[in-house]
């Protein structure tokens, strides 16, 4: 199909408008991050030309112990939760691909059991989990967040890894079985290496989800286990909002998940649609 020139033009205009729309907030964060407080509410959009940029905010930000601590917490929580969720999810994904379950719980039932976890709104279990964490003396530790975040992200791992394993030719497993390998060996030596790209993508997706999580983070941490989103939300102090730090902090917190989302997009479609749509 050929497009006529004016059709192309209209398309480019529409796409261009939306591209600006999608990109603008990132640009705006950047502009705010290099402004001094009194320039914030001025109508100046282009650094150097309209105002003198400064790195002051970045310097202050990156030397604030609170921010660095949050960066550390976020990294720990996201990494450990990702490892747990991907590990547990991959086991199930693998089992659902290679085994046929009979009896009251068939493959589909097991699959759906894990999926409902993802449909459950977090706020439903927030209160009981709060008290459970309190009784376990886990409040304000990274462990509370790690437990909750990995629980809520297991389904994502199950979905993507199941899709991944399904795309491998069945004969590989048969061959390994004939060679006398146990299922543990087949899983670690055959299935995992072959699905490495999927594994990496899944990890990136789950890492980003955990990294961005706010509701549990703001509920279960008060000082020691505070993560970056909570710090960002705290840019409001008793003399109002510090817009310049909103700029630095939002860029700081967004950069990793945004990059990950671009790298893992093919798998994202499957993960987000529970495997209903292939990317």
């Amino acid at each position: 199909m050929r497009l006529r020139w004016y059709e192309k033009l209209i398309m480019y205009v529409i796409l261009g408008v939306f591209a600006v729309w999608a990109f603008f907030p990132f640009y705006w964060a950047f502009v705010n991050s290099i402004k001094i407080p009194s320039q914030i509410f001025q109508k100046s959009w282009i650094p150097v030309v309209q105002f003198k940029p400064t790195l002051h905010n970045w310097k202050v930000e990156l030397s604030t112990p609170m921010v660095l601590e949050a960066l550390r917490n976020s990294t720990i929580v996201a990494t450990v939760s990702t490892i747990i969720a991907v590990f547990l999810g991959t086991l199930v994904g693998f089992a659902l691909t290679v085994f046929r379950y009979r009896g009251p719980f068939k493959n589909t039932d097991i699959y759906i059991f894990f999926l409902t976890q993802r449909i459950l709104p977090p706020v439903v279990v927030l209160m009981p989990l709060y008290i459970i964490m309190k009784n376990l003396h886990l409040l304000d530790t990274v462990w509370a967040l790690i437990i909750v975040d990995s629980t809520f992200n297991i389904p994502m791992a199950v979905v993507i890894m199941r899709e991944m394993f399904k795309s491998l030719p069945e004969e590989i497993f048969e061959a390994a079985l004939v060679d006398g390998a146990g299922w543990g060996r087949i899983f670690t030596k055959v299935a995992l290496p072959l699905s490495a790209p999927g594994l990496v993508a899944t990890s990136m997706i789950i890492f980003s989800y955990v990294w961005n999580e706010f509701l549990f983070a703001v509920s279960f941490s008060f000082t020691k286990a505070v993560t970056l989103p909570v710090i960002v939300a705290g840019t409001q102090q008793n003399r109002g909002i510090e817009f310049w730090y909103v700029g630095t902090r939002s860029l700081l917190v967004m950069i990793i998940p945004v990059i990950f989302s671009l790298l893992s997009q093919r798998y994202l479609v499957r993960g987000l649609t529970f495997g209903a749509v292939k990317g």
Partner: peptide, 8 residues
């Protein structure tokens, strides 16, 4: 000194 945002 532990600083906590006013809203929290």
């Amino acid at each position: 000194i532990i600083e906590i945002p006013f809203t929290q």
